[in-house]
């Protein structure tokens, strides 16, 4: 769907070149929600804005549906952009236009539908995002969550196949964030829309993304399915994000382990096994005693998962580990 081939981006600042994106190869499959996470200045916005050519790549090519968009002329680029929606952290709605006129704007610019067709489409979109009552209000009269829903309706008006979200929920409170994420999740399913989403919260990735790329200093340092990256983070940056999400401090945890006896393991359950009564069963059969040091049961998009950190004392540790593995539970030995 979206393919980066050795895309490199450098900005010229006062004669000096600043690399914002190291040569990068990337594939974003159709219909997925693709998350980009990284610290401030990592190059997330740069990467995202290359997709609709708000930024021009310094070198490399970007293919969208097998079309090299870096080769488009001005008119073709405008047509291409009509097929790519975008939403922003600060919404970027026109304060001089009503909600309905904001949503109608891309349609008016495209100039393909009649006035009555536009009106019908705007009504349909406002209904979809639950804002029909606010059609004639101005953005200043809306809450943040409502503004972002106007932004989403506006971005969807031309029936795009791609939606780009640059920190779409960063300016919202947790509850409103949840609602906006829910809406993005639904439209991704309903419209088979490919969504590329920037965030610096692992929680957002975990809740709605299929795949994730972790960025650090202009590089993609880790990439894969969310469950893979989230449950088994490799790169230090990724680990930091995951631990942040779990409100854990890696160093702190290691210090605590030093005072605990026994074999310390981390179990990862996914899908069905999450709710099975495995722990007691294994303990009975292998004769180990366990204490739970840490634990969490949650969802990755719609799949439940659980992670438990245990210390095993006595009994047959090896047999216990085998039993866990046999039940499709991923076992990591943190300290033998």
């Amino acid at each position: 769907m979206i393919q980066f081939k050795h895309v490199h981006k450098a900005y010229k600042v006062g004669g000096r070149e600043i690399t914002a994106l190291e040569p990068c190869d990337l594939q974003i499959p159709e219909g997925q929600i693709f998350g980009l996470i990284g610290h401030s200045g990592a190059g997330k916005s740069t990467l995202l804005r290359l997709i609709n050519r708000l930024e021009e790549p310094t070198s490399g090519s970007i293919l969208v549906k097998d079309q090299d968009i870096t080769a488009l002329d001005a008119a073709a680029l405008r047509r291409f952009r009509q097929g790519v929606g975008m939403i922003f952290q600060h919404f970027n709605l026109l304060s001089s236009k009503t909600v309905a006129d904001n949503v109608a704007m891309p349609l008016k610019l495209a100039n393909e539908l009649s006035k009555s067709q536009i009106r019908a489409r705007v009504h349909q979109l406002l209904e979809r995002v639950g804002l029909t009552d606010h059609a004639q209000k101005y953005p200043a009269q809306l809450s943040g969550g409502q503004k972002q829903r106007v932004g989403i309706a506006r971005a969807l008006s031309t029936n795009p196949s791609i939606l780009l979200c640059d920190e779409a929920t960063s300016a919202l409170d947790p509850q409103t964030t949840g609602q906006v994420l829910q809406l993005l999740n639904e439209i991704n399913r309903e419209l088979n829309l490919t969504i590329v989403l920037i965030t610096h919260e692992m929680d957002v990735i975990r809740r709605i993304c299929d795949q994730v790329a972790v960025m650090d200093a202009g590089r993609i340092v880790e990439q894969g399915s969310v469950s893979e990256v989230f449950l088994h983070p490799q790169h230090p940056t990724t680990r930091r994000f995951v631990y942040e999400d779990e409100h854990l401090d890696e160093q702190e945890q290691l210090k605590r382990f030093a005072q605990i006896t026994g074999c310390i393991i981390k179990l990862t359950f996914q899908g069905e096994s999450t709710y099975s009564p495995l722990l007691g069963e294994v303990a009975r059969h292998s004769g180990v005693d366990y204490s739970i040091l840490n634990g969490r049961i949650d969802y990755i998009r719609d799949t439940p998962y659980g992670q438990l950190t245990l210390s095993l004392i006595g009994g047959n540790t090896a047999a216990a580990l085998d039993a866990f593995r046999a039940a499709d539970v991923m076992v990591e030995i943190l300290r033998p």
Binding site: R79, F88, M105, P106, L109
Partner: peptide, 23 residues
């Protein structure tokens, strides 16, 4: 950001001036 959003919609320069900047 508003200019950028208008650009992202596929507006021409003339449209950006008349539909976004001036209003």
């Amino acid at each position: 950001g508003i200019i950028e959003a208008t650009q992202a919609m596929g507006a021409s320069t003339w449209q950006i001036i008349t539909q976004a900047l001036l209003p």
